[in-house]
Each structure stands twice: as structure tokens, then as C-alpha cells.
Amino acid sequence: MSNDTVSSEMINAYLDGELDGAEQARVENHLARNPEAMETVRDYEAQAHALRQLYDPVLDEPIPDRLLDTITPVEAHDGARVSWLRRSMPLATAASVALAVGVVAGWMLRSDLYEQEAERIAMQMFLQQASSSYSLYAREDSPWRETRLEEDRDRFGEWFRERNELEIAAPELDDDGFQFIGGQALPASSGSAGQMLYRNDDNQMVAIYFQSRGDDGVLSRALERNGRTAFQKQDDLSMYHWNSESGSTRYAVLGSVDQDMLGSLAERAFDHFR
């Protein structure tokens, strides 16, 4: 009987064509006499089939330009050059005449990099403003903790709209144990900004920071390109941030709470602002 046992790894190797003739015969022999083992093999085969159905469609997708650009030098790849130019079009307007002259290409590339750097900094500034607003008005050791707040949750939106051209309503986070303690308008380099503070029974504070995009082109583009949701953690402060669907406002939910809790709060806020 012990001779007849075939390990599960053997069965796998059989399926994957990794056995020599003798081993293969042994497994086949085993399968012929063990319907249960045979069923396992069938299941594994069906599994492989399902996996391929699941993942194969990627094979038929056209290869994205950026990957082709990576693999093929730009000079040799006309399509790539066109799309690269299209990407830097906003910048190119001033340079469009000079474009015809090949010499300018070097300069174009450099200013595109500057642009990316500017966008990166604009994004950093958003994160910086969100976290410093939290530090100023929500941290225990701050002299400004919980000062200058509009404390009525229902009225906050109206109050804010009177001062800024932005519709905003404070969400309810009671289900996660957080109560609204107030909201405030904050200075912003462009557009309008503000935050809403919430506290739970353990005296933990979270903030919802929001900033609408103003006329600042760099920030707008930074938001556009980095529209995806993201998570950041620095020291004891965690933050989720994302763009509104229209892209006009960026939100951050931040606080010194664990990531699961913060995630749940962010999810609620996300649904609320949608």
C-alpha cells in the first residue's frame, strides 16, 4: 500500500509535465485506482483553465505607448515621439515655433522635468498643509487646539460657503465613534481650504482637510495627474487622500489613529463627498 501512495507534490509534478516516464506511469497507475485522486487532478486542470481565462485577456491588449517608449529609442519610434510631444503640449505653446528646430528638443525635455518637479512640490504642499493644519488645531500640545471653530455641524457648510466659493457639508462619523467638534476655513495658496475636526471618546482626534483647486495651474495639474487615492504615514500621523470625482477638490482624512480606523473613516468621508 505504501508503494501506492503518491504525494500531492507528485500529482502536481505530473500535471506540470515534470516527471520522467517511470514516475509518470506510477502516478497514472495511482490515479486509475483512486477516483478521489483523479478528481483532484481534474479540479487542478479546471483551475488552470480558469486561471488562464482570468489572466489571458491581458495578452490581447495593445501594449501601452509608454512601455514601447521604454523599449524603443525615441528616434526610432515615430508614434512615441508624437505622444511625447502631445503630453508636453501645454508647455509647447510658447515653443511651438521653435519646435521645428531640432535644437530646442533638449530644452523642451528639461522644462518638462521642471514641470513634473513643480507638480510634485505642489502635491507635497497639499500634504504639508493638511498635516500642519492638523498639528495646529488638533494636537494636544498645540496652543491653538480646537480654537476658531464653527461648532455647529449643520451650519458649517453655510458658514463656509459665505466665506469661500465652495459647497461643503460635514459628514457624520458617529458610527465610528467620532463626533464633529467643529470646522474652520484655512488659508490656501490657491482655491479654498478648510478642515473639520472630529473626536472620539478616547480623546483621539481626526481631521478632514479639503482644498479646492484654484487658478494655480501647477496644483491643478498635480491633482489631475495624481488623482488616485493614496495613503501616507509620517511619524504618528496617517493620512488617506483622494480627489473628488470632478477633480475640483482634494480631500484628506488624517489623524493619529490606527490605519484600519482611519481607513473606515476615510471610506465614510469618501462616500459622503461623492
Partner: peptide, 13 residues
């Protein structure tokens, strides 16, 4: 991992 954790909360449209 963070991204995955995040996506559990936010389904990207």
C-alpha cells in the same frame, strides 16, 4: 501592500 489595503476601502471607479 499599502495600496492594496487602501483599495479594500476605496474601489476605484
Amino acid at each position: 501592500d499599502r495600496e492594496l489595503h487602501f483599495r479594500r476601502h476605496f474601489r476605484e471607479p
